[in-house]
């Protein structure tokens, strides 16, 4: 049975159902179909399960990270139907029927995506924890705006925290990738 996740949340807040029946519903399992990095998955998920936990715990795609509980840090960013989303901000059930790309799906045939290459060439990472989210946000940016200015890059990264690099080399990494992608006219993700 497919249940709208938003209804569930509203129900709890307006106390239309009791706490116990709330727990029964959130513990309910739902069946979803998603395509992740080109591979189709049919999975059973808890109604309340966040997309990021589905990716990490069920599909074991641990490149997508969890850095906060307020949708602020962007470490969990993935591409869903062509747009960057924070996978901690939506339920797995909401991704039913969607196509998702995580950082594991970026390199093709052993060749790094130009953005991945840019991060390595320009030292755009240190501890690496924010990096997958940064890279996926950059994918989204360069899809929409293949030749961003520094200001546009910095603005696009607003939703992603990095505590190591001071952002300086992340900006350079994305500039590197933009140039490279223009040269290669790499197919968009």
């Amino acid at each position: 049975m497919q249940v709208s996740s938003f209804n569930l949340i509203i129900s709890k807040e307006t106390h239309l159902i009791t706490n116990n029946s709330y727990h029964n519903i959130v513990n309910m399992n739902l069946s979803i179909q998603v395509e992740v990095n080109g591979k189709k998955h049919r999975s059973t998920v808890e109604a309340r399960q966040l997309l990021v936990y589905y990716l990490r715990d069920q599909l074991r795609l641990t490149g997508t990270h969890i850095g906060c509980d307020t949708s602020s840090c962007g470490a969990c960013t993935v591409i869903l139907d062509g747009k960057a989303v924070k996978s901690c901000t939506m339920l797995a059930a909401q991704a039913d029927g969607c196509s998702i790309t995580t950082v594991e799906g970026l390199a093709q045939n052993g060749e790094l995506h130009p953005i991945q290459e840019g991060f390595r060439e320009e030292h755009g990472l240190q501890c690496g924890f924010c990096t997958p989210g940064m890279i996926m946000t950059a994918v989204d940016l360069l899809n929409k705006n293949p030749e961003p200015t520094e200001t546009e890059i910095r603005h696009a990264l607003e939703g992603n925290f990095c505590r190591c690099t001071g952002y300086h080399n992340i900006v350079k990494a994305i500039q590197y990738a933009a140039t490279k992608m223009k040269e290669k006219e790499v197919a968009h993700v």
Partner: peptide, 13 residues
């Protein structure tokens, strides 16, 4: 260039 980067940029850290 850093040798550790590959695992981090491919999500394999």
């Amino acid at each position: 260039k850093r040798v550790e980067d590959k695992r981090f940029i491919t999500g394999k850290g």
